[in-house]
């Protein structure tokens, strides 16, 4: 059996995963994952209309405290979701913005961000 192997290349992933955080600039809001999804759908409809609204976004993780979330987005709608989140700027007439910290077609890669490594090491800038 030695040396026998099969190689599979997957080229177009079905989904992309996005790690996003909602920043309300200090304003208080009581969000749960349903409300959060509602907000995202509002952002999508606002920018892309019904076409945007038809993209199915799944919230696969939501942290109530930090408003951090991992979204699962069909790869075909990734650009629409990303742009809608970027341009969304107010919630209930209060300013807010979405920070997209990592986007990947591989979910395990979102469990760690090597770009945070520097802050962990408390490095000064070179």
């Amino acid at each position: 059996m030695e040396g026998e192997f099969e190689r599979i290349v997957l080229k177009s992933p079905q989904y992309h995963y996005m790690m996003v955080q909602l920043d309300l600039f200090g304003a208080k809001a009581n969000f749960d994952s349903d409300l959060f999804k509602n907000l995202i759908m509002k952002a999508l409809k606002g920018l892309h209309g019904d076409v945007g609204g038809s993209i199915s976004v799944d919230i696969i993780r939501f942290e109530k405290k930090s408003l951090k979330s991992i979204l699962r987005v069909p790869s075909i709608g990734l650009v629409k979701v990303w742009s809608a989140l970027t341009l969304y700027s107010s919630h209930n007439d209060k300013p807010c913005h979405f920070k997209v910290s990592k986007v990947s077609p591989h979910l395990p890669s979102l469990s760690v961000n090597s770009r945070d490594f520097t802050s962990e090491l408390l490095l000064e800038k070179v």
Partner: peptide, 10 residues
């Protein structure tokens, strides 16, 4: 599935 476990997701 492996990803959901490592990200502690739903």
């Amino acid at each position: 599935y492996i990803g959901t476990i490592s990200c502690d997701a739903n």
